[in-house]
Design a protein around this nucleic acid. Structure first.
Lengths: 159, 159
DNA sequence: ACATGTTATGTTATAGTGTAACACATGATT
DNA sequence: AATCATGTGTTACACTATAACATAACATGT
């Protein structure tokens, strides 16, 4: 499962991206689509320079071009930058308005699990309101160990 | 208030750091103390190179020395790296075991507010447990706008 | 068609963040 | 003294990200 790609959803993703771009009077250009496709082919976050290498096989790309495409894909809500990893992930589902998403990043295997949590959204909302703080996004990152890796670790360090 | 320093707590901080270091059979060396002091003199996060500049006034310091001290201060729980800022903050209170802390980082003024939230801790704990995910830390970062900056923004862009 | 404005990309250079690798020093323990 | 872990110095380098400016491509109104 860890190596599973998500290319099956690519057409749908492109359609969604096109629509979202259009509603902003922008467009999902070939370059942006390529970056999206590279991210869609992975189940883990990729660094900007990983994406550059992937694309440079077919055409020379400067880092800035990658960063610009990533910025756009983030603006339309399809991609998120994982600050703890300095890496970029495709969001599996387009997060709904006011939906609170948790990105569970395994520090061992690097896999990212996305979890929607209305309960955390609720308590977080109250806490932020009490602090008069307006969050820029409803997506939070949690680093830790996934169940698979924890199991592996307990096997290699028993008892 | 934004410029307020926290040098008054420095002695207590050093005592705490010394104790925590000692319990790990390590020590709060002069270098580490200096880095701690620089962070304690600011109410906002500082980049590693900001700290380097602050210390290089008295003595030349290589980046790696700063990073090593920061790593140590993080290990003993006095300092946290804000991934979204690539910057380091002194934690105001030593976070208790299992306490969930939110770091509210204002993207406009850069100030950081630390909020303890048992309610978020509770819901987050349940959510993570349901996902079989073990968090590496109980500290989460939220980027957004603080109340002061929001007020300023609404004044300059009325109605 | 033409001028204009906006969107998107190209190009070059550079800034900012973080580590590897190895040497050396210091202090504790046996 | 020998040894081991801890801590720092030094050099060099890798990785991440953006500035500044030029050009292209496309829509829109006249």
């Amino acid at each position: 499962m860890a190596q599973m790609t998500r290319s099956t959803d690519l057409d749908g993703l492109i359609a969604l991206g096109t629509a979202r771009a259009r509603s902003r009077r922008q467009s999902l250009t070939p370059l942006r689509t390529q970056v999206l496709a590279v991210l869609a082919a992975q189940s883990r976050p990729l660094g900007a320079y990983d994406i550059q290498r992937a694309l440079s096989a077919s055409k020379h790309m400067s880092p800035i071009s990658i960063y610009r495409s990533l910025e756009f894909l983030m603006e339309i809500g399809l991609v998120h930058r994982l600050a703890t990893q300095s890496a970029y992930v495709l969001l599996k589902r387009p997060p709904a308005e006011n939906e609170t998403l948790l990105c569970l990043v395994c520090r061992s295997c690097g896999e990212v699990d996305e979890v929607s949590s209305p309960a955390v959204g609720q308590t977080l909302g109250s806490t932020l309101a009490a602090a008069s703080f307006t969050p820029a996004s409803r997506l939070m990152e949690v680093e830790g160990d996934c169940s698979d890796c924890r199991r592996r670790m307990s096997l290699s360090h028993p008892g």
